[in-house]
Design a protein around this nucleic acid. Structure first.
Lengths: 220, 220
DNA sequence: CCCGCTATTATTCAAATGTATAATTCATGG
DNA sequence: CCATGAATTATACATTTGAATAATAGCGGG
């Protein structure tokens, strides 16, 4: 009959595990309800811990959410870069196709990714560190795209390549946003097909039929 | 020596004027710092009134911010539609060009418009009324774009028109977002040129040189 | 087996937020 | 010129938020 105040039992987890869990929880919440839904208490609850633990691993809530944003962006670019690693440089069209296709399948085009991006994109205005991450990610992606375009077998023209990289990047972004936020409005593989057709038209090239199958890994 | 508590002097303004001011204030704040910056007190301060007045004109803060979002979207589509009113239906290429160009000049492509769109786009997930507005605006815009594409002088093909409308819409969206959020990264008229070139390539048409001048009104 | 370290929980706090209500002051009509 | 009512301000309140601090329990080393 001792009325001992029951304290929630717990198990210790390594620092990396806890940080991962907290970042993942923040990501999910931001993607679902925007930054205002990612309160310290909601994040902690989703991660299965109590709120106080957040400030044990992060100096502030902003520190945590910035880490979440950065991780989402890094994961997406890393995934796109990994997709072209296996394609030989001798086939620039296939490399470009693989790069494009990587944007339109998980884990890049998912409601979570698009939601996090949307939730945080306007914060770049006020938060300098976040703005830096945003701009660096955007320009880095576009530069990589321009490199792939410049490698195409056609007369060199850097100014044209820049304009076409901007156009292709915008097309990819727009389709990624729409496909990620309104996933039910498109048939399986439809977004990828529209992207490849559009980019082929912009660049004046033709992608092989194999590029239109999103399971690019299997065809390698 | 009467210690009368000084009450802020004020002048009465009509209901429409006050609603306009409050909506404009909410728009600006959302575009600058996202929805979380648009508190009732901040909105009231920006509009030059006190916080209590908001609930005199709107049933809730959500009601006000929804009105702001709706107004931004309606203004943009109305502007784009107004741009093609003066172009005769006999010239579908010019109509399409005018519609496109309207998206890349004020008041459509501005940091405020893009900021409001970005700030609210993820709220569509949680708020049903906002989601309805978002989807209706998006599909309405795309349908109108598809109509303009279908009117082009070429063999009819509805399925192709749909895909190309999706692609052109995505390209416009992506460029609009980038041009609005990173205005210093593009030269004067560069975004419009890239958009017209890209859409011309996607549709297999050519826009006249006059379409590349954003002051479309003067050339009419 | 026990002791100390720290990861984790629990509690507390001040500030901010949306909302509700009371108190006034501006305008308008007679 | 005054009275009536609505527009506007001012104040109060309950809730939530991020943060700070105190308490405790899991876990590894001796």
């Amino acid at each position: 009959m001792t009325e001992r105040p029951e304290r929630r039992p717990y198990r210790r987890a390594g620092e990396e595990k806890r940080r991962e869990d907290l970042i993942a929880a923040a990501m999910e919440l931001v993607s679902e309800g925007g930054p205002e839904a990612a309160t310290v208490r909601a994040i902690a609850a989703r991660a299965g811990v109590t709120a106080g633990l957040i400030r044990h691993y992060f100096s502030s809530k902003e520190d945590l959410t910035n880490a979440a944003y950065r991780q989402v962006m890094d994961q997406m670019t890393a995934h796109a870069l990994r997709a072209i690693e296996t394609i030989p440089a001798a086939d620039p069209v296939a490399r470009l196709a693989a790069f494009i296709a990587a944007n339109f399948r998980p884990p890049v085009m998912t409601p979570v990714s698009v939601g996090v991006w949307a939730g945080y994109m306007h914060l770049g205005r006020s938060d300098p560190s976040l703005h830096e991450t945003h701009e660096a990610t955007y320009l880095g992606y576009r530069d990589r795209l321009q490199e792939l375009i410049a490698a195409l077998p056609r007369p060199a023209d850097p100014a044209r390549d820049r304009r076409e990289a901007i156009a292709c990047n915008a097309l990819i972004d727009g389709l990624w946003i729409e496909g990620g936020s309104l996933p039910d409005s498109f048939a399986e593989g439809e977004v990828l097909r529209i992207a490849l057709d559009g980019i082929a038209a912009i660049l004046g090239i033709t992608f092989p039929a194999s590029a239109y199958h999103s399971d690019q890994r299997k065809t390698g």
